[in-house]
Design a protein around this nucleic acid. Sequence first.
DNA 1: ACCCGTTGCGTTATCGATAACACAATACCG
DNA 2: CGGTATTGTGTTATCGATAACGCAACGGGT
Lengths: 339, 339
Amino acid sequence: MTLRDIASRAGISIGTVDRVLHNRGRVAEKTRKRVLGIIEKSGYQGNIFASNLANSGKRHKFCVVMPHLDQDSSYWRLIEDGLKAAAFDLKRYGVDIETRFFDRYSGVDFRRLYFGLDGRGHDGYFMAPVISDAAESCFRERPLIKPYAFFDCHVPGSAPVFYIGQDSFQGGMLGGKMLHLLVGDDADVVVTRMLPEGWHINDRVSGFRAYFEERPGARVREYDVDCRAGVKEVESVCRRMLEGGRVDGLFVTNANTHMFAYALERLCGAGKVKVVGYDLVSANRFFLENESISFVISQNPVMQAQKGLNLLCRHVLMREELELEYVVPLDLITKENLP
Amino acid sequence: MTLRDIASRAGISIGTVDRVLHNRGRVAEKTRKRVLGIIEKSGYQGNIFASNLANSGKRHKFCVVMPHLDQDSSYWRLIEDGLKAAAFDLKRYGVDIETRFFDRYSGVDFRRLYFGLDGRGHDGYFMAPVISDAAESCFRERPLIKPYAFFDCHVPGSAPVFYIGQDSFQGGMLGGKMLHLLVGDDADVVVTRMLPEGWHINDRVSGFRAYFEERPGARVREYDVDCRAGVKEVESVCRRMLEGGRVDGLFVTNANTHMFAYALERLCGAGKVKVVGYDLVSANRFFLENESISFVISQNPVMQAQKGLNLLCRHVLMREELELEYVVPLDLITKENLP
DNA sequence: ACCCGTTGCGTTATCGATAACACAATACCG
DNA sequence: CGGTATTGTGTTATCGATAACGCAACGGGT
């Protein structure tokens, strides 16, 4: 099936068919309908090679929107690694990647960035809309014109090409199980709820509680912690936690796990409280190696970013049909399988 | 950098450059050297789109060589899933995938299959050379002419484009750690050595022992098991094992884990002996769900096959430069993160 | 000297999609 | 009614690599 086939079936020339395909106008509505019908029926897919050859010289530009790299204990650096890998692969397809950062704790900053995306300079967006409410209102007020995909979290009511990310509830369950294994049946465990609240965090906490609800031997306590907290504040939370009763295990629901491991090392010695946490950022890696953190649950951010950006580009450039949702597997990392 | 640039720099026509690039002969040795020199210096990479467009109509065919799907507890079906996904992606690039199977326990069968690969019908091979000695002798006697890559295991002395697979020793260590967590410090654990011996199995056993060598509280026993054993034989091994002394945990070093879980359920009831094993085949999935198997280590066969085949094709079709080795991460699967 | 085979190299149609351009046929306006 | 926009459509050069074809130059055999 080629353009020429379509044209001859429709009794017109390839120029007109091309105009239909690219919405370049100047086509009679009747002709347009007919051509679209034939394309639909024949399952025409176009030839990527011819298309890209004809387009050579033209470069495509995609824009990644995400929090500053050093926020969330540099979790976003892991994402960046995946983006870099994807960008490298995509260079030969004439694709450039631009990254724009916002302050993860400032809805205002996100809005400023969002409404600066005019859609003219870019062929698509790959976005981590971690500030749920700001993102939701932005997309409601004025959705992006160009195709966009979400990673890390979703924005309800929007229509992205796809979403790629984790299953947070299951992650919490998994964290519960690992902590249970570490501390045994009769135990006191603590889970942190990070503030400001985000869906991920809440789902992780819920999953964790859900696991222990079926195991009445264990007692679960919960503490609020500000995400922006430094080592000092984390230490004071840990102190309160230890003063609040027995603590056998701690589940930290985001990448700041290393701060708690460090604080607990100082307050009651390494290994006293078993720690399970999130994300393989380099600080956590260190504490995994010295076993102050027993397990870390990883949502494979490198793969998530690489695969996601790749998919988005292939969708736009090669018109590949995609799934609506890609759930990345939960990786369970411990000293013995540190990559 | 285009063919035309190369040609003008060399003071000849594009036809001659193309003849050099594709070894089509009819080129003076002096000219050939000069062209190759310029290509080298300029880092010319060719234009995939133009190349594939010109080649359209021509289809590429790759051949996958691996054991019968139902061997190793249908482990190879997981591989096949990945292959199918890759084949689907690659169709639009004019790539066909043919799969040939051999008997995993018959060197003769492998040799027959290997020497039937004449290289004329195929553009490349993607192979799981699980019968180490047969594969090694085959490659020594007459290496494949077309590019080939290995998955699952390597053949020493051969020169594949790349190898994609797991780190078995680390897998054994990880298995040791998980079992340790499950059974505690003072315990008797058993590891199975599957026969006929293969590198993977031996490395897994070594990794497992290495983990417990640093933890003198635990006593490790080892039992040989024929890979071809059915449920009956596995049950008799388990009986011997239980009669041989206390058993708190069992590490099964291949996909047959479910057979042991089943046998132990019958012999001493579920949950009495903690089981850690390998591979997320459907039978193991069942026992993970009912918690007769606590953990399964997965080498992500679907991803391994998909990524590997994709890489090989891209190497051949688009002349992409590749790494020599791709180590796939070890996935730790338990009830709570079953995909 | 003639013919044929080989070697070395240049020329060009082809692959399929793209978009600029050309050119009718209407539509619209004063 | 003349003249300028606008609309609908066809034609064609272009992207870069491929490989068939053409042709000259030379070598060796009779």
